[in-house]
Design a protein around this nucleic acid. Structure first.
Length: 424
RNA sequence: GGAGAGGUGGCUGAGUGGUCGAAAGCGGCGGUCUUGAAAACCGUUGAGGGGAAACCCUCCCAGGGUUCGAAUCCCUGUCUCUCCGCCA
């Protein structure tokens, strides 16, 4: 959530900045509620002060053995008034809060104008899409050719948007994950973390999937109010919830491999073919916890760390900056990595790297102690996929096929395939 | 799953319904002493919020309740620990 001060003196400025992402701030309502809040809060606190003083006086009188009855009479209807006032205050604060919780992060000034992914701006390209002098197969055809993908089995076992992988393809999938994880741990200095794939509501509030995006998670039956994670960003970022971190510990760089679960509501008819968009998929996630002044430099590094994976796999890709309208709720700036898929003849998303500034940290109450002032300050959080495993595997399959439909294993993956160089 | 014990500041750990936001110790910071350091000694040191300000409010796991007044009493939840059972 945004700093409450964004809704006081800064209100009009905030509203202007939010327009970039197509968000309309209800200025009039906020101004009215703020006014009421101020009056009621001052009044309530005065009454509390009065109560505290009276109670104290009663305590002192009793200690001296004096008669406290006159003092008790004096209290009168103070309790009623206080209750009344604090209830009103609570109502106003709830109204304000529910507005504020629905307000997304302010886009960074670098973020391009625009409404949809068509307005995203390409930053750079790496590699050149190979030209094939034969009819390329997409990953579904390749997978079925090698008896490595069984979508019918998956829909029998569960339903649509699930998959069964077998044999070398299943192993290739695992190889991609191991490779990515090892690379981030051994070469880029990440701390490997194993986390729960089921989280409680507090964690979802912390990273702001709740209250606004309840429908984007699978919730579990039972009295716990648990959810399946749509991304490891949630458990990883919540590691620092309610913590005051020593400045010397920063930056924290976490990497984890987890399954991710997404209902994909609202994407009917989109990417229905193959394993591009699934209800369950594997992902290696990168999360940084940094000092505020370091977060934009961190975003560049984090993005590079995701890119290195694609480079080592020799997969052509491009990097785009998301425009205001395409930006995620909590992000101030996001780079998407899009890998070339010969089967679709287009660049498709395999990673999304975002700087959340203090937007999540505020609801997480995640802070560090500033050595200068000795005071706790909100940290900044960042996250990015490094990378989505299934989509990366698709790209490996499609980009490394030959005329016979054989899949050539990239060198860096061969050690994870027991030395296998080609499938088929 | 059954039985019991507990959750207090950065940490350990006291706390009788009434100046308790909380003793003490450790740690941190500042100082005295020292050529320097250590030791010793002295001082200081929780978080969040409101208000133009003086100053005030809230917070002792969470949420309710009792009371003029709750860290302290009651209820519910939650987590941790110990024992038993079960188990990968």
């Amino acid at each position: 959530m945004l700093d409450p001060n964004c809704f006081r003196g800064e209100l009009h400025n905030t509203a202007t900045k939010l327009k970039k992402r197509g968000f309309d701030l209800d200025i009039d309502t906020i101004e009215r509620l703020e006014e009421e809040r101020k009056t009621l809060q001052v009044k309530t606190q005065e009454l509390q002060n009065l109560r505290n003083m009276r109670s104290k006086a009663i305590g002192q009188a009793k200690a001296k053995g004096e008669d406290i009855q006159p003092l008790l009479d004096e209290v009168g209807d103070l309790g009623e008034k206080l209750k009344d006032s604090s209830e009103q205050l609570e109502n106003v604060q709830d109204s304000l809060q529910s507005i504020i919780l629905g307000v997304p992060n302010i886009p960074h000034e670098d973020v391009p104008e625009g409404n949809s992914d068509e307005d995203n701006v390409e930053v750079r390209r790496w590699g050149t899409p190979k030209t094939f002098d034969f009819q390329v197969l997409d990953h579904v055809e390749l997978g079925e050719k090698h008896q490595g993908m069984d979508f019918e089995a998956a829909s029998k076992i569960t339903g649509s948007r699930f998959m069964v992988l077998k044999s070398e393809i299943a192993r290739l999938h695992r190889a991609v994950i191991q490779f990515m994880l090892n690379c981030q741990v051994e070469e880029n200095g990440y701390q490997e973390v194993y986390v729960p794939a089921i989280v409680n509501q507090d964690s979802l509030w912390g990273t702001r999937q709740l209250p606004k995006f309840e429908g984007d998670q699978f919730s579990l039956e039972g009295e716990h109010g648990y959810y399946l994670i749509p991304t490891a960003e949630i458990p990883l970022t919540n590691l620092v919830r309610n913590e005051i971190i020593d400045a010397s510990q920063l930056p924290l760089k976490f990497v984890a491999h987890t399954p991710c679960f997404r209902p994909e509501a609202g994407s009917y008819g989109k990417d229905t073919r193959g394993m591009f968009r699934q209800h369950q998929f594997e992902k290696v996630e990168l999360v940084w916890i940094v000092k505020p002044e370091e977060s934009f430099a961190a975003l560049e590094k984090l993005t590079q760390h995701a890119e290195i994976i694609l480079q080592k796999l020799n997969l052509p890709y491009r990097v785009v900056t998301l425009c205001g309208g395409d930006l995620g709720f909590s992000s101030t700036k996001t780079y998407d990595l899009e890998v070339w898929l010969p089967g679709q003849e287009q660049y498709r998303e395999v990673s999304s790297c975002s700087n959340m500034l203090d937007f999540q940290a505020r609801s997480l109450q995640a802070r560090y102690r500033d050595p200068e002032t000795g005071k706790p300050e909100l940290i900044h959080t960042l996250n990015g996929s490094g990378l989505a495993a299934g989509r990366t595997m698709i790209a490996v399959m499609e980009n490394n096929q030959d005329e016979q439909g054989k899949i050539h294993i990239p060198e860096v993956l061969q050690p994870y395939m027991n030395g296998l160089t080609v499938i088929g």
